[in-house]
Design a protein around this nucleic acid. Structure first.
Length: 663
RNA sequence: GGGCCCGUAGCUCAAUCGGAUAGAGCAUCAGCCUUCUAAGCUGAGGGUUGCUGGUUCGAUUCCAGCCGGGCCUACCA
């Protein structure tokens, strides 16, 4: 409702400016006045025009207000302040539109940036090394990614969700080293551990940390990693078999953990197939043919195939030609002929855009309770499979520490001449989750004096330092269960468990989404386990209360929406203005979804959900609906509750938060 | 050394391409449960938006410099 009217207003203003002043404004700024009593939209454009038209802002505003033909659904325009133009909607018409069409209805995408594509969109997230349990940092990644997927789907985009698995790297090798050198376990013995251990990823978590210590104790122990890495790449040996076993089992655990949060994947491409299907060879050929890579013949990178760094601005050395090798160039292929991580990533991204000329094999791997299948890459896959790759746009949800290599891949695409694809490649970058020193000490970690003064300490899987995802979720579920048990002893155990789970997930997902991406989350149990204030459960509770009204009334929200309500009458007075503000906020859902997509910032949705819940709680407290004597007004209040309930549920749904039946 | 990010209330965070009186939550204090559930509501206190300049009708936002903090910057993966 809000978005449609805003767009109509913008179009009308743009057309008017073109005709009247021969001005072409690319984007007309429209915001909201400080108070809804001043109208629904505010245009500060007279200030901008003042200089160009050599007139006072207020004068321009008056001219526009007098002459602009109002779009349908608008009441009037007014000049306010020093020259703002405020627009008023016809509240009753807007309300009726909202009653009929949810504000979450699909929108079109004209000029919406990277998501302005007609084809399929690929979102890659999670991508945890399959050698240890997932921790809170991985949770932020997966929740951001999954929410973005839901946002895109809400807006009508077809989306494939991928989770990249680096199953041949040093991290998996380290755990294999742990089994072979520290624990002296054979493959069957490891299989025994797996069979007897529900959370094998936890076992690996500890082992991985021990291996890291072992390396530190004696640098010569690092030899074991190299040997193991080599063996894994070679294949057909026990080390490689162990690596495969460990990575597959840990991967399955990750999928189970994420499944607890309602996060699903369509495809799991693995590095092992990128190697064995020789993706790099095809990419290398293209890169050489187009001169993106060149063979360095001098300096420290002699014998390597390198690429000039995208961000590297050559220092201004007074116009002199720099001589000698570009030491700052990025090494893609080492002098011993092996390709680095970035090279493989370039090949992988050529595949994503359908530019590689090769494809994975595909095998079914994991079935979700709702029958949805996650597929995994394979050397030789099943004959029948869905088609992945060849997409129009990609979003890689990867933390900000990876922005350098990400930019290198984008630059490689651009240099290869794939400028369109490079423009539709988005590094969805976010900051890490760290622990507060207090939290670290609570968990029993030794915190160095120098770290105690810091506001946060970086999580490290290598050191086994962090909060495991399943542990956090368990703690949240237990905390929620205590509350639910005491509030609803009349419900059976199974239902209480389901509700506790919904609340825990709501709390966790909201917590991870309420921070903007560039903010480091300093994790603290006290805040993460909160169910009051700006939290997921607070928003869920608002919906539950709205639902209770209808339950008590013995009617359905749908009836309240279909009822014949005299909106014009009840919106007219002062109390009506207050309630109108709530409707307006509820009508902003599609606007918020679009904003989240355009800025790759899901936090807007979280903030919006909270605001809507807050205003509804206020409304709920102020108006006792079922006691309302005036039947017409009662219908009006019921419709309000129904609209807010529907929109708030939808926004929460986009965030992957479901609403319990009772709380 | 170079690149990216951050600095806003006691704490954790918002602030829609620069807009009207910088807003929330937590914590503290004072109120509200015979009412559709108190996981809620109302109120109070709490701010030189790190510092100094600049651009602008208008700066938390943009630019420059400084101060403080974080991350990245290997022929590792």
């Amino acid at each position: 409702m809000y978005l449609e009217q805003q767009k109509k207003l913008a179009a009308a203003v743009r057309a008017f400016l073109r005709e009247k002043y021969q001005l072409d404004l690319a984007n007309v700024v429209i915001e909201q006045p400080p108070s809804v009593e001043m109208g629904e939209f505010a245009l500060p454009l007279s200030f901008e025009l003042a200089k160009r038209l050599r007139k006072a802002p207020r004068k321009i505003a008056e001219e526009i207000v007098a002459q602009l033909a109002l779009p349908k659904g608008f009441e009037k325009l007014e000049v306010a302040g020093a020259g703002y133009i405020n627009a008023r909607l016809k509240r009753d018409i807007a309300a009726q539109a909202l009653v009929r069409n949810p504000a979450t209805a699909r929108t079109t995408h004209e000029g919406e940036g990277a998501a302005d594509v007609s084809g399929k969109i690929l979102v890659e997230h999670t991508s945890i090394n399959p050698n240890k349990a997932a921790h809170i940092g991985h949770l932020r990644n997966a929740i951001l990614g999954d929410t973005f997927v839901r946002l895109l789907r809400q807006a009508g985009h077809p989306v494939d969700v991928q989770n990249y698995i680096d199953n041949t790297g040093a991290q998996v090798a380290d755990v294999v080293v742990g089994f072979a050198h520290l624990e002296k376990k054979s493959k069957p013995e490891i299989a025994g551990i797996i069979a007897s251990n529900q959370r094998f990823d936890y076992y690996c978590w500890d082992l991985y940390a021990r291996v890291s210590q072992w390396y530190e104790k004696d640098k010569e122990n690092l030899e074991a990693r190299l040997e193991t890495l080599h063996a894994i790449e070679l294949g057909e040996n026990e080390m490689a078999d162990i690596a495969e076993l460990v990575s597959i089992v840990v991967l399955r655990r990750h999928l189970e953990t994420m499944d607890r949060l309602g996060i699903e994947y369509d495809f799991l491409p693995r590095e092992s197939e990128i190697l064995r299907l020789h993706f790099w060879d095809a990419a290398f050929q293209q890169l050489k043919d187009k001169g993106v890579l060149y063979l360095e013949t001098e300096g420290k990178n002699k014998g390597c195939w390198v690429m000039a760094r995208p961000a590297a601005k050559k220092p201004d050395d007074g116009g002199q030609e720099r001589s000698g090798p570009d030491e700052d160039a990025k090494v893609i292929v080492r002098s011993n002929g092996t390709v680095g991580y970035v090279g493989k990533d370039i090949a992988y991204h050529l595949w994503k855009f359908g530019l590689l000329g090769r494809d994975f094999g595909y095998q079914k791997f994991y079935q979700y309770p709702n029958q949805h299948e996650a597929w995994i890459s394979a050397e030789q896959g099943e004959p029948e499979h869905p088609h992945f790759g060849g997409v129009a746009a990609i979003y890689n949800v990867i933390d900000s520490r990876q922005s350098d290599p990400q930019n290198t891949v984008i630059e490689a695409l651009r240099l290869l001449g794939y400028t369109e694809q490079a423009a539709h490649y988005t590094h969805f970058s976010y900051e890490m989750v760290a622990l507060t020193p207090r939290c670290a000490m609570e968990l029993g970690y030794a915190v160095k004096d120098e770290d105690r003064a810091k506001s946060y300490i970086e999580v490290s899987g290598r050191k086994g330092f962090g909060v495991k995802a399943d542990d956090l979720l368990d703690a949240l579920i237990n905390a929620a269960k205590v509350e639910v048990d005491s509030r609803h002893p009349e419900l059976n155990e199974g239902r209480r468990a389901v509700i506790s789970q919904q609340i825990a997930i709501g709390a966790l997902r909201y917590f991870m989404l309420k921070f903007t991406k560039q903010s480091v989350i300093a994790f603290d149990f006290k805040e993460a386990l909160a169910f009051e204030g700006e939290t997921g459960p607070y928003a869920q509770y608002a919906v539950v209360r709205a639902t209770n009204i209808f339950r008590k009334a013995g009617s359905e929200p749908e009836q309240a929406l279909a009822a014949d309500v005299d909106y014009a009458r009840y919106f007219a007075d002062e109390s009506g203005t207050e309630i109108w503000e709530l409707w307006l906020l509820a009508g902003k859902t599609s606007f918020v979804v679009e904003q989240c997509i355009a800025t790759t910032e899901p936090a807007f949705a979280a903030k919006h959900a909270f605001q809507l819940a807050q205003q509804f709680s206020n409304f709920y407290h102020r108006h006792h609906i079922l006691n309302e004597a005036d039947e017409g007004r009662k219908k009006f209040l019921l419709a309000t509750a129904a609209v807010v309930r529907r929109e708030l549920s939808n926004v929460l749904g986009v965030m992957g938060i479901s609403v319990p039946s009772v709380m």
